[in-house]
Design a protein around this nucleic acid. Sequence first.
DNA 1: TAGATTGTTAATCGATTAACAATC
DNA 2: TAGATTGTTAATCGATTAACAATC
Lengths: 222, 222
Amino acid sequence: MGETHKPKATLAEGAVPKAVVSRLSLYLRELQHLVRDGNETTSSTQLGSLLGFTDAQVRKDLAYFGQFGYPGIGYRCTELIDAVKRILGTDRSWPVALVGLGNLGRALLGYRGFQNQGFSIAAAFDVDPQKVGPAIENVPTFHLDELAAVVAGKKIKLAIVAVPAAAAQEVADRLIAAGIDGILNFAPVTVTAPSNVSMVGVDLAIELEQLTFNVVNQPSKS
Amino acid sequence: MGETHKPKATLAEGAVPKAVVSRLSLYLRELQHLVRDGNETTSSTQLGSLLGFTDAQVRKDLAYFGQFGYPGIGYRCTELIDAVKRILGTDRSWPVALVGLGNLGRALLGYRGFQNQGFSIAAAFDVDPQKVGPAIENVPTFHLDELAAVVAGKKIKLAIVAVPAAAAQEVADRLIAAGIDGILNFAPVTVTAPSNVSMVGVDLAIELEQLTFNVVNQPSKS
DNA sequence: TAGATTGTTAATCGATTAACAATC
DNA sequence: TAGATTGTTAATCGATTAACAATC
């Protein structure tokens, strides 16, 4: 016995809903725009209206993590940016492994949006020997067989999977075996991972399907 | 008066939660895999367990749209695929306009996953005269000034925005003026549209942030 | 001070899950 | 028939919103 109660801290963290975390990223993005536009402070009302949320939701979301505002004043933008970055873990830079050097993979190699938010693709992999060797966009490329060595050597914890659907699960398994803790999967297939590995899937065709549903079921079409 | 009651049908359609629609796309994807693997029928339990949902959720989601199963039997895969495609509107082919021929835009031009689900990029646009003219991946390219004419001529209703954040809102405005009904936005910025235009945003850096949050807040790290 | 805005509690709303009669 | 599985209703759960005392 002696383990009847789980530690409170862990419980509290685990209790944060996914939706809250994804809104946190949106708050961060808006805050960065606000600062760039010269704003020193903002409010839950302003932040919410920029994103189509209520002010109560903004405050409630932040309340999961602490107190960041000043009653009567609002939030100091740069202060809140720093706090949200700490919460999300992007107060530091993360090296990322990219697997798959097809069309999509090569595009992601050159995508500027990653660097801006503290991510840098540190190594890229493919099974095709013809696609690896020379660096692309200043990123060194390797055969997939070198995955474990490179991931360990560069202390990489995050990976992006941009391989065909049929190969995605095996690539994920190898990434996990190599010590990766989080995977962003672009292959249009469900990939499973143990619970200590975080998985996020983005299926580009599915995103378009959300649009067609809305267009087809649009109440009024002038 | 005489408008006291809104039409029932419209209300029912508007009542479908976003989360249900996105799960519908996941069901479709799994069903297609099941058929490819030789399965003729499936069940809410099987479909759910493939995706990590409960059987009750699968049945409840489908119930928004009708009755598709057979008590004691389950669902005939190809039949349910056809039904879900009809619901999502992907029982036909959709021409899509792509704006922005940077790294990401060009990769999306060659992405095979779109065709597989009934989407085909019918025209691509950029403001840089150097990037347009010759077809890329068999897709004709145009200067953005030709947007309205091409969209009308090809009867395009959906668009993908892959331009820098600073240009995204203006591009969206021009797409909407040209008659586009749905926009998939990859620019890392909130883009607003009138309520009769459907917007879906995908921010690749934000997806990675969901991973870092989980990794940083991982209960146990062996 | 008066006005603005937070953090937080309570009330509401909506979505998920459980249960089960009906059906094959 | 017995076993399996649906569609649907009721119960539970969780997330959003409203309200307000505390604060600047």
